[in-house]
Design a binder for these strands. Structure first.
Lengths: 226, 226
DNA sequence: TCAAATTTGATAGTATTACTATCGAATTTA
DNA sequence: TAAATTCGATAGTAATACTATCAAATTTGA
């Protein structure tokens, strides 16, 4: 990908915040710092109090933006999912061949995002780490009602839809392209998780190329397997 | 599977408890009731205080068995993984044909465990629900050191090893049978999670047969795809 | 079967977490 | 420049995640 940093402004579901954190400087700082803290220490160790001290600001200010840390975490995850969708779109734009497009998409999913070395903006490498380390279930608290669930998963859903469009072309026989899309995405995440935290549970090493090869071999369409 | 309920006594890594809960009546009750509570309300809502009131017993007694609720949760997950390994072994015993054995294993993984209607023992249907609802990352707190991680994943590892042995025969070309084993197991869990909590994110419905077909289609070895 | 050891229950207490409420100061907007 | 909004500071509450102590009950084993 080239270095077009056109700052795609992402649009989030209103249900993901109380007050839009992008609408103020302190809101953006909340986002920036919380990514760092959650990526490093995990969501369990992360509290609004610690975040407020770090900023510095106060708990009450943070509560004006997010109802609780779970909502904040899901906001961050949504940010990641939206970015991933955008990267997917970019990587597959103008590729006419179905299989090639699928492979470009896979390549993108298997990529470790690189550290943007303090663009004063959100650190996307740490954001990816956070999402992978937390796991999908973290971003969907059990007590949500149906419309809250929709809000919490809206970005993920968009990512799924885009991926499944690609899959509908490359895997024509597949009756469940959406399920396949999640399966691929979550398989990649799971492998990345194991590499980060329990390498003894997998025989795929941390090299990006090996991850891609593995995922490609599993998920490549039938007619194109060697 | 027939109704042989031979009460396979499972052996757990010592790192998974302070005092073996199977060694006393109250320990077994702790296990039994915590499965119910966590499956119903989630690990976030679950506290030792509530469990103690339910039993009834006291917090101090529970702390004598487990250091904290995360350790207890992982103990329960390990129980599930061990049971799953046992089921896998049973379902594939004496099957000589590699592909058939693989398919029997898949069938077993895709099965919703049935409620044992109060065998006064642990409710395995709820246990499965708990494991699926929590997600893999829940059972591996970030702050663990290496040997604790080994203890926390020992049962899962055994399950992986058994599955990967089957895969080494059915998927001879696959260079990473362990990674494939986790990918299959976690894909099944992820689909089950979506069916339970966010059916709008998948196009595989809750019918067991459809889940099996989907998983089978994705993961069946190359040479045998239709 | 009785003494010793172990296990449990009951109570108390602490530090932290996850909030909610209030109010004045600073800043923005109109 | 008045009005509205936002933020910081402080206070407070209920719940959580523990730890400690000690007596009662139970188990063990000589």
């Amino acid at each position: 990908m080239d270095t077009l940093r056109s700052h795609v402004s992402l649009v989030f579901d209103k249900g993901l915040y109380t007050k839009d954190p992008m609408s103020s400087a302190i809101g953006q700082e909340i986002i920036r710092q919380s990514v760092e803290m959650i990526a490093d220490k995990g969501l369990d160790q992360f509290t609004f109090k610690k975040l407020a001290q770090q900023l510095p600001s106060t708990e009450s200010t943070i509560y004006r933006y997010f109802q609780n840390k779970h909502q904040l975490a899901t906001y961050l995850a949504s940010y990641h999912w939206s970015q991933m969708e955008w990267r997917l779109a970019f990587a597959t734009a103008n590729i006419d061949q179905d299989i090639l497009r699928f492979e470009k998409a896979l390549r993108e999913l298997c990529r470790w995002v690189e550290d943007d070395i303090e663009s004063s903006h959100i650190n996307e490498a740490k954001l990816q780490r956070m999402v992978i380390t937390s796991g999908f279930t973290t971003f969907l608290p059990l007590e949500l009602n149906k419309s809250e669930k929709m809000a919490y998963t809206s970005s993920y859903m968009h990512l799924l839809k885009r991926m499944s469009l690609i899959l509908q072309k490359s895997h024509r026989y597949c009756k469940h392209p959406e399920a396949l899309a999640t399966a691929i995405i979550e398989s990649v995440h799971h492998q990345m998780y194991l590499q980060l935290h329990t390498p003894h549970l997998t025989d795929v090493t941390s090299k990006e190329q090996q991850l891609y090869s593995f995922i490609h071999q599993i998920f490549t369409p039938q007619s194109h397997k060697k």
